[in-house]
């Protein structure tokens, strides 16, 4: 109804000025309604190429499993608003990590994301004296803006570049301060560049991240002795076997503000899109030492739906 109304309103305003016969306006109203009916049958479709919305990183942004990319979430392009939602589980020897979240991709330009991270300390909780199966929780609110470039198109040498910010709020400030963290909330700033090198079927991503986060923020931010931002790097390389299947590897450096031996992250992942709207990711992830418990290697599993 709205376009008809608009058109009719325009006619009402323009007709007396242009001395148009009102009947002509009425005729156009009719033809507009007809074209709207046709537009109604225009099929909704997935505007983005498969997998180019990437998967959901642990902090909720579109990217790899552990690294942030310059990609924009959701399956819509310049004229649409896309959305994706994910559930992730990481099974580690001494911990169980679970996260879920949603991300909006607006006009292939802006991404807004939210993720909730739940980190089950299992037996470690008892050993550290915070309680058997104590859960560390965190909310992550993210925003990302694509500055220029395109993952697939345009100059081969110009990647898609995006700048992002993530506000992280630990819900366990008491634990964070007990281990020596300076804050229970913090902001990460990221700058990412991503390109699919079609001639080699290889996707490359590099990200620089300014952060104070300890274990991604689950153990707070900064420390009493070292409360400064550090620049960290995230890299990913992936080979595209088909439109639906990608194999890749990721690397992410992390600061060790608390002196607990926090190490870098590494994974090897496979992402598969069984349908246009579903992506499943499985990875072998090496998350190093967490809260002095070393050798945290295990399976990373994610299901993501996107529209």
């Amino acid at each position: 109804m709205t376009p008809v109304f608009n058109h009719f309103a325009t006619c009402l305003m323009v007709a007396p000025l242009a001395l148009l016969p009102m009947s002509l306006c009425a005729q156009e109203v009719l033809s507009d309604t007809q074209s709207i009916d046709q537009a109604g049958t225009f099929p909704e479709y997935n505007a983005k190429l498969l997998l180019t919305n990437a998967v959901s990183a642990v902090d909720g942004a579109s990217g790899g499993g552990i690294s942030n990319w310059a990609t924009i979430a959701g399956r819509q392009e310049t004229r649409g608003v896309g959305v994706q939602a994910h559930v992730t589980a990481v099974l580690l020897p001494d911990f169980f990590y679970q996260s879920h979240g949603v991300a909006l991709g607006i006009a292939d330009r802006i991404e807004l994301s939210y993720a909730r991270q739940n980190f089950d300390t299992q037996d470690v909780g008892a050993a550290l004296g915070i309680g058997q199966g104590y859960m560390l929780n965190q909310d992550v609110f993210g925003a990302k803006v694509r500055l220029f470039g395109d993952v697939v198109y345009g100059n081969t040498m110009v990647p898609q570049v995006a700048v992002g910010a993530q506000y992280k709020r630990s819900l366990d400030g008491a634990v964070a301060s007990a281990v020596g963290a300076a804050h229970d909330e913090g902001v990460d700033v990221t700058l990412s560049a991503t390109k699919l090198l079609l001639s080699h079927s290889v996707l490359v991503n590099t990200t620089a991240r300014l952060t104070k986060a300890n274990q991604n923020g689950l153990l707070g931010f900064g420390s009493v002795s070292d409360d400064s931002y550090a620049i960290q790097f995230e890299g990913a390389v992936a080979y595209q076997f088909s439109r639906r299947f990608v194999l890749g590897t990721e690397f992410r450096t992390k600061p060790d503000n608390l002196g607990l031996g926090e190490g870098d992250w590494f994974d090897v992942f496979a992402a598969y899109a069984p349908s246009d709207n579903l992506t499943v990711t499985a990875a072998y992830a090496d998350l190093g030492s967490i809260a002095t418990f070393t050798g945290q290697r295990g399976a990373f599993l994610q299901a993501q739906v996107a529209f």
């Binding site: 505007a47 983005k48 001639s199 079927s201 595209q240």
Partner: peptide, 28 residues
């Protein structure tokens, strides 16, 4: 729009797939 170009790319991928062009060569 870019979405239209994506649709056209998918159609070209289909045409190449039907002629059994390997995916790496399609990308090249």
């Amino acid at each position: 729009r870019k979405a239209d170009l994506n649709a056209i790319v998918e159609n070209l991928q289909q045409a190449m797939r039907e002629q059994d062009v390997p995916f790496a060569a399609q990308n090249r």
